[in-house]
Write a protein that binds this DNA or RNA. Structure first.
Length: 555
RNA sequence: GGACCUGUGGCUUAGCCAGGAUAUAGCGUCGGGCUUCUAACCCGAAUGUCGGGGGUUCGAAUCCCUCCAGGUCCGCCA
């Protein structure tokens, strides 16, 4: 509804002024929508902006009212629009329907890759920033109507995995030991690196393993495969706890076995930018890269970048839009990948880069065993959440309390991570992660539960799709923005916008809740407010689910 | 040394790409509000050289230049 109104008003301004851009902007406290077009016309017309604004209002107000029911007026140089009753009632009708905010089905197929952590230790609080950005975008794309496949790209043949395989053999570790596989692998990996640091000559054994696995040696392949699988099983456990699921796990080694890597390397070797001596590398200086892009080692084995090219060519052929979520450490290699694909006429991926999460004592390192695992984070947050639920709802059965605590914990974790823009590097803070108040997931869940509770107590009522008074109108107008927010997230790849929106919607609902009685109001007001509570409830539910957070009905 | 990202009240943070109305919220501080629809809440107050300096513009947190600080990268690792 909001977007439709913007389009209509934009077209009217365009018609009237002849300018391509109607200069629409948020109206802030003054209006629902505003245009700063008077500033840009000032030079041409040689008139003061406030004068121009007044003239524009005079000429378009009537047509705007006719087509949208919005009020047009000027404050100084700003042309302002305030939406009217029809807008509010249309919004309420839409927002009380199941699936509010969903876009119509789009033909464009999207593939999104996220997490893709190396299987050499458990997911830690840095990795899950990737996971949560990726999963939230996934949910937004699906909400917007795009068919989307989520992939996990498994590095099952890199140096790190060779180190794990070597570590298992040299430490005689029991790869089938009980416990969570990813944590088990981390122990082996950390210990193996300790040995390699002490005696670098041991690296020869790692190199040998990498040659064997690339040449297809069956024993080495299974030596790699078993720990990778154990680790991945651990990842899947952790991801499931966070409401995250991948549609497909794509194995890096497949692009060696099916010959795709060889094919792309051969294509590249014929390019004028290719440099072939002992190694194969590519000169990307035309794209502004100083460093050449190395694709094959002198011992003939391929590097990660080569396999990644093959993977992305495959994705580009099977999907219309390719999106990767990558840590800031991949910026160079990621942009080199984009440039190379562009050079050979393939579709480069869109990449969302996110900056690092570090610990107060410094950056995390799986290799050095310096990290807080996602499992620890979840366990601790659940423990705190259970304490909280037990204090608040002692009458509930333990099973029920545990269930709520889990949903609250995941909500707190996911929200804490997604609310910050990806470009900001953050320091992990237990106090913030365990905060269930205000700018948190549980705060939004609570607003939803509160709305549910009111509606449950109300029983049946006659819906009334109207809003009256400041608080009601502000709330409806916020509800109206939900579809716009989803579409912004998808076009700009900025999932934090949804997090902020959901919190602001909860804020407005809480203010409304405290200011206006619902159940105790006289009948026609009660019906109207119950309809509004229901619209809010539904919008909060859709927003929470799109954030990957359970919309609890009680907490 | 070079490249990219970040720097907004004591702390955390939105706005920056597409410049425009008194810069967004939270935590913390101070003052209020639960026999009344779930207080994981609400209402109010105080707190700002938008890292520093230049420039462009009628107008800059936003664009350009420069400097400073933090992070990341610059491997025949991934």
């Amino acid at each position: 509804m909001y977007l439709t109104f913007c389009d209509t008003i934009g077209a009217i301004i365009r018609d009237h002024t002849g300018k391509d851009d109607p200069m629409l902007t948020d109206g802030g406290d003054h209006a629902d929508l505003a245009s700063t077009i008077a500033f840009s016309l000032a030079k041409d017309l040689k008139k003061a902006p406030p004068l121009i604004a007044a003239e524009i209002v005079n000429s378009i107000a009537e047509r705007v009212m006719q087509e949208t029911g919005a009020n047009t007026f000027a404050i100084g140089p700003y042309v302002n629009f305030v939406f009217g009753e029809k807008y509010c009632s249309d919004v309420l009708i839409q927002a009380t329907c199941d699936g509010y905010g969903s876009g119509k089905e789009k033909p464009e197929r999207v593939v999104l890759e996220h997490t893709s952590a190396n299987p050499n230790g458990p997911l830690h609080v840095g990795h899950i920033r990737n996971t949560i950005i990726g999963d939230t975008l996934t949910r937004c794309f699906r909400k917007a109507g795009y068919p989307l496949e989520v992939q996990y790209y498994v590095n099952d043949m890199g140096r790190q995995i060779a180190i794990v395989a070597w570590g298992i053999a040299s430490q005689r570790a029991d790869i089938y030991a009980e416990g969570k596989g990813d944590h088990l692998i981390a122990e082996v990996y950390i210990e193996a690196n300790r040995h390699l640091d002490v005696d670098p000559s041991l690296n020869a054994a790692i190199d040998r393993l990498m040659q064997l696995v690339e040449s297809g040696d069956p024993d080495t392949i299974s030596q790699f495969k078993i720990p990778v699988k154990r680790c991945l099983d651990g990842f899947k456990d952790t991801l499931e706890k966070m409401n995250v699921k991948h549609d497909r796990f794509v194995y890096e080694s497949d692009f060696i076995r099916n010959g795709d890597t060889e094919k792309v390397l051969s294509r590249i070797s014929h390019l004028p930018q290719a440099c072939i001596d002992e190694i194969l590398s590519l000169d990307l200086s035309q794209y502004g890269f100083e460093k050449s892009y190395i694709l094959r080692r002198s011992d003939g084995t391929s590097v990660y970048a080569a396999r990644d090219l093959a993977f992305h060519i495959w994705k580009g052929h099977n999907f219309d839009r390719v999106i990767d979520i990558l840590g800031a450490d991949h910026k160079l290699i990621g942009t080199q990948l984009q440039a190379t694909l562009d050079l050979i006429g393939e579709k480069p991926p869109e990449i969302v880069f996110f900056e690092f999460v570090s610990l107060p004592e410094g950056s995390m390192s799986t290799r050095k065993g310096k990290f807080i695992s996602a499992d620890e984070l979840i366990a601790e947050t659940e423990r705190r959440a259970l304490e909280e639920v037990t204090v608040r709802r002692p009458e509930l059965h333990e099973e029920q309390r545990v269930k709520i605590a889990h949903a609250v914990a995941i909500s707190a974790i996911r929200y804490d991570i997604i609310r910050t823009i990806p470009e900001k590097n953050t320091i992990f803070d237990w106090k913030e992660a365990l905060d269930f108040e205000k700018q948190s997931g549980p705060y939004i869940q609570y607003a939803h539960a509160r709305a549910c509770s009111i509606l449950e107590k109300a029983g049946t009522y006659t819906p009334c799709f109207k809003a009256e008074g400041e608080g009601e109108i502000a709330l409806v107008k916020k509800i109206a923005l939900f579809p716009k927010v989803i579409s912004e997230v998808v076009t700009e790849l900025k999932p934090h916008l949804l997090a902020i929106y959901a919190r602001e919607l909860a804020d407005l609902f809480n203010s409304f809740y405290h200011a206006e009685p619902v159940l105790r109001a006289e009948e026609h007001v009660r019906n109207r407010r119950l309809t509004l509570v229901n619209a809010t409830r539904n919008t909060l539910k859709e927003a929470l689910e799109t954030l990957g957070i359970d919309a609890l009905r009680a907490m």
